Amino acid sequence: MLDETAKGVFTIAATPFLPDGALDFDSIDRMVDAYIEKGADGLTILGMMGEAGKLSAEESVAVVRRVTARCQVPVIVGVSASGFAAITALSNEAMEAGADGVMVAPPMGLQTDAQITNYFHSAADALGDIPFVLQDFPLATGVQISPSVILRIVEDCPTCVMLKHEDWPGLEKISALRKASDACGRRISILCGNGGMFLLEEMIRGADGAMTGFGYPEMMRQVLDAFLADKLDRARDIFDAYMPMIRYESQPGMGLAIRKYSLARQGIIAHPTLRKPGAGLTAAAITEIDVLTLRQEKRLAELGL
């Protein structure tokens, strides 16, 4: 069961599709194996990268069951929805299938601190004993959650055990949350996203690891291992080798297509298909990704990776 001590790399998993848009279960199996082989301490499925909003309720449950049956590491399931009935239904199905917790993002439209706090109070009540991750991703949700509001939710909701931190810029938020926990506030796990764009700085500020879906998931493992071994220069060198691809992936509206292309290029999934609606890549973009990949491989070889 997910708790406040979670740390390391929780890779955000894509949802593989066949060219006709049907779920690709063989690729799910291969993807789960690859993520773990590349150093994942846990997996997060049906997040925004997982195209959860394009799946039916039955498909979502099928994906959860396939992943939990395949892997032995903790699994977190994204359950964000417009209403608590859907959140509760998928959460219960996920936990029965062997998931370790769920992730909830605030719905668009919440503007005041009171609205945000009340929403997560209600979410905690709806989930009961199920541990949950508070997903703080204002670039996608439009909901700005201040450190004081997060601390209030953490204090009031003991089943809130992790923050998925994706504010940008958000380093000062991590510092504020850790300052509060150092002053005897309840300390929860903080795992960070944004494609790993600020991973090293986030770790220095007090994050416990990464929860993101960068197309080369081994990057998070390699950077974290070097950081935890007090080899900060080594961590920076590794990060620098991947940085051009991280930057390219960060393009709004293209990130998922780029990631799926990279995963397919590595043989982790069979097809780079995005379920409609979803934009594919142009020939020019594919050429750019291929060039970046070759340069990345060269730099990693120079580092002995």
Rank of each mutant, 00 (worst) to 15 (best):
M1R: 08
L2N: 02
L2Q: 10
T5V: 10
K7R: 11
V9L: 05
T11L: 02
T15G: 03
P16W: 01
P16A: 04
L18Q: 05
P19R: 06
D20Y: 09
A22E: 12
A22M: 06
L23I: 08
D26E: 11
D29L: 09
R30P: 01
M31L: 12
V32L: 03
V32N: 11
G39R: 02
A40V: 00
I45P: 07
S56A: 08
S56R: 04
V64P: 07
V67M: 09
A69T: 08
S80P: 02
S82H: 07
G83A: 04
S91V: 09
S91I: 09
E93A: 15
A94R: 05
M95S: 00
M95V: 04
E96D: 15
E96F: 07
E96K: 14
A97P: 04
A97W: 04
D100E: 10
G101D: 06
M103R: 04
V104F: 11
V104D: 05
A105V: 06
G109A: 03
Q115C: 07
V133D: 03
V133C: 07
D136P: 02
F137S: 13
P138C: 08
V143W: 07
Q144W: 07
I145P: 02
S146C: 05
S146R: 08
I150V: 09
I150Y: 01
L151I: 09
V154D: 02
V154Y: 00
E155D: 10
T159R: 12
C160H: 10
V161Q: 10
E166Q: 12
D167T: 13
W168Y: 14
W168A: 14
E172N: 11
E172I: 12
A176E: 15
S181F: 15
I188C: 00
G195D: 09
G196K: 08
M197I: 10
M197P: 00
F198C: 12
E201T: 12
A207I: 07
G209A: 06
M211H: 04
G213M: 03
G213F: 01
F214C: 00
G215H: 03
M219W: 03
M220I: 01
R221M: 04
A226F: 02
A229F: 00
D233G: 01
R234V: 08
D237K: 06
A241M: 03
Y242V: 01
I246G: 06
E249M: 07
E249L: 07
Q251N: 08
M254F: 10
M254S: 11
M254R: 12
K260R: 13
S262C: 14
A264N: 05
Q266K: 07
K276E: 15
T282S: 15
D290K: 14
L292W: 09
R295N: 15
R295H: 15
R295A: 15
E297C: 11
E297G: 08
R299V: 11
L305G: 06
